[in-house]
Design a protein around this nucleic acid. Structure first.
Length: 575
RNA sequence: GCGCCGAUAGUGUAGUGGUUAUCACUAGGCGUUGCCAACGCCUAAACCUGGGUUCGAGUCCCAGUCGGCGCACCA
């Protein structure tokens, strides 16, 4: 796309000047990959997060939790991050290229290079050619590069901790508590909004790739055999542009589908994934992202994690960066819960009752300990336990205990056929994970909202933020600083603020200048008090995008402004 | 991490080794101003950091930081 100017430069300039986004600790020279949210940025971020909450917490009913940003090493051994997040790298001494050491070794038929130590890998590489410049490596150093920030918990270095690379793990490690909280019933979900950290090799692209970033993630635990969303009808006919594997592999464009059709034709794996794709589309639309700048791209087989059954990214088109993955929606199956079960030795299961209890006949074997004891001594108890699951033979029964086989005469136990009632079964839930990059959403919102209008030969910079996420909700402006207009205005300002409306009083400069100032930070409405206000208690409300004004009674503002901000009242209907 | 380029008030800039660093916008104050960046007066505000060369460095050299681009990396 050819642009007259670089919109990114304009946005970065505006966000710095007006206090949205700043380079961090600027007085010490900043650090790449870290940003500060300034006064308006922090407010905008909070409102974006609140919009997210209105979907996931209020609509879906998934409670929010908050876990530490640092966790002990075992959490990330369990999750696989300690192993998976670390790449063994090597720099070619000749051409200075950085390469994956294990990939080179495997390409030259060294099996399991991924599990080799750095020293052995380095020795293996010595005689191999660099895939980039084709010279033989010679002596090289292989170093691990893990994208997680490592730290030490407590004094000394006894206990390793890591800054979380995603907020998700907290919902998994709290699984048993959450299950109890939701009174042992599937499906249920928990969400978390917070910071996550990845030590990127070289972060670029401003707020698109950060070392500290903000995520909003939901983990929804569902029955593995029941992936129909109970509220699917909400989005059954919702239409979303899907860029499926098939379209990507065949060079086609994204196609629009209803969620119902997408699930029925197996483009999307199940109703849960489809439901959150549609919900994400609705959420992004409410943030002000334009339809044509959104698409949902399915991960190709080789980019999908091996355990995932389906994965889609919501991508938003940026004039600067192209298609940017902003949200990921995955069916992660039971991978995470099994992984933590294995590492922690705890149960990550749900007891699911059957509608009708199942009965089954079972042979019950009960050992005669009076005879078993003297015969097998210390092993007697173990053998008795093993007998319970054994298949009885003609005259004696074989059991294996601690690797040794024992022949137990049938006279040492009694057999009885019993009817066992099974009231349910234990299942490891599957996890549906919608994961949102807050910072990327905010950048996308800024890029989509930024406009330069021509007004009477002058350029008007305006952020057309949806009213409900605008940092300042209304500007209160006295037309003049005389005849008590200023004090009337500042009274109104306090009154609005006491109604939880974030208003800002501004009396500096000509009225037009003040309108422009608020256009630039996206303030959707401006209330102006003029000389009629003194006479008849009326004020004007000026709308940011149309610059149209309407005169209303000052006492109506407390209900009108919230109505306008939350889209319950349309400004046009007041004209 | 490699290579190339860049960095001067809040923003955009001028400044070819020599006084007190240019200009505009912005911001603050006062006046003025009867609804879309009007005007007048006043004020505040900068050479990215650290070394070096030089009698003298915003200017030249080196290193670093940050930013941009290309490469590499991005479960």
């Amino acid at each position: 796309m050819v642009l007259m100017y670089d919109i990114y430069e304009e946005i970065i300039d505006l966000t710095r000047r007006r206090g949205f986004i700043w380079p961090t600790s600027e007085c010490y020279g900043s650090v790449a990959g870290f940003i500060d949210y300034g006064p308006l940025g922090a407010m905008l971020k909070r409102r974006v997060e609140d919009l997210w909450r209105s979907f996931y917490v209020y609509q879906e009913g998934y409670y929010e939790i908050e876990c530490p940003t640092i966790a002990q090493e075992s959490v990330f051994i369990g999750s696989g991050h300690v192993k998976e997040f670390a790449d063994k790298m090597v720099q070619c001494p000749h051409c200075k290229e950085f390469l994956r050491a294990d990939h080179i070794a495997e390409a030259h038929k060294t099996p399991n290079a991924q599990t080799m130590s750095s020293e052995i890998l380095a020795r293996t590489l010595m005689s191999l050619p660099c895939p980039s410049c084709e010279k033989i490596f010679g002596p090289v150093e292989v170093f691990g590069f893990n994208l997680m920030f490592k730290t030490a918990i407590g004094p000394g270095t006894q206990r390793t901790g890591y800054l979380r690379p995603e907020t998700a793990q907290g919902m998994f490690t709290d699984f048993q508590r959450l299950l109890r909280f939701y009174r042992d019933k599937l499906p249920f979900g928990a969400v978390q909004i917070g910071k996550a950290y990845r030590n990127e090799i070289s972060p670029r692209q401003g707020m698109i790739r950060l070392r500290e970033f903000n995520q909003a993630e939901a983990e929804i635990f569902v029955h593995p055999m029941q992936k129909n969303h109970p509220e699917f009808s909400r989005y059954r006919d919702y239409i979303v542009p899907l860029y499926s594997m098939n379209e990507q592999n065949n060079g086609l464009s994204p196609k629009k589908h209803t969620m119902d059709a997408a699930v029925k034709t197996n483009i999307i794996a199940n109703e849960y994934v489809a439901y959150y794709i549609a919900l994400t589309h609705e959420l992004l639309t409410k943030l002000g992202i334009k339809e044509e700048r959104m698409r949902f791209r399915q991960h190709l087989r080789d980019e999908m994690a091996h355990y995932a059954s389906d994965c889609w990214d919501a991508e938003i088109y940026s004039d600067r960066f192209g298609w940017v993955e902003t949200v990921g929606i995955a069916d992660r199956t039971d991978y995470d819960l099994n992984a933590h079960a294995k590492e922690s030795g705890k149960e990550f299961k749900v007891f699911v009752p059957f509608d009708v209890p199942k009965t089954k006949k079972q042979l019950k074997i009960s050992a005669d300990m009076g005879k078993l004891g003297p015969l097998f001594k210390v092993k007697a108890k173990l053998i008795a336990d093993a007998l319970k699951d054994a298949i009885p033979g003609e005259t004696s029964t074989r059991v294996i205990v601690e690797g040794e086989e024992y022949e137990v005469p049938n006279s040492l136990f009694s057999m009885k056929e019993e009817i066992i009632e099974l009231r349910g079964e234990e299942v490891v839930p599957h996890v549906i994970e919608p994961s949102y990059g807050i910072d990327r959403m905010i950048y996308a919102v800024l890029e989509c909202s930024y406009y330069e209008d021509e007004v009477e030969g002058e350029t008007r910079k305006v952020l057309r933020l949806p009213a409900r996420i605008a940092p300042v909700q209304v500007a209160v402006l006295p037309l003049m600083n005389k005849e008590g207009l200023d004090s009337l205005a500042s009274e109104l300002n306090s009154r609005l603020r006491s109604n939880a409306i974030f208003s800002v009083y501004d009396d500096s400069g000509a009225i037009g200048r003040r309108y422009r100032r608020h256009d630039e930070i996206g303030t959707p409405f401006a209330v102006t008090l003029d000389f009629d206000t003194i006479k008849d208690k009326t004020v004007t409300i000026r709308e940011r995008d149309s610059m149209k004004q309407v005169r209303v009674n000052i006492d109506e503002l407390e209900t009108l402004i919230p109505g306008l901000i939350h889209d319950k009242i349309q400004f046009e209907s007041l004209l």
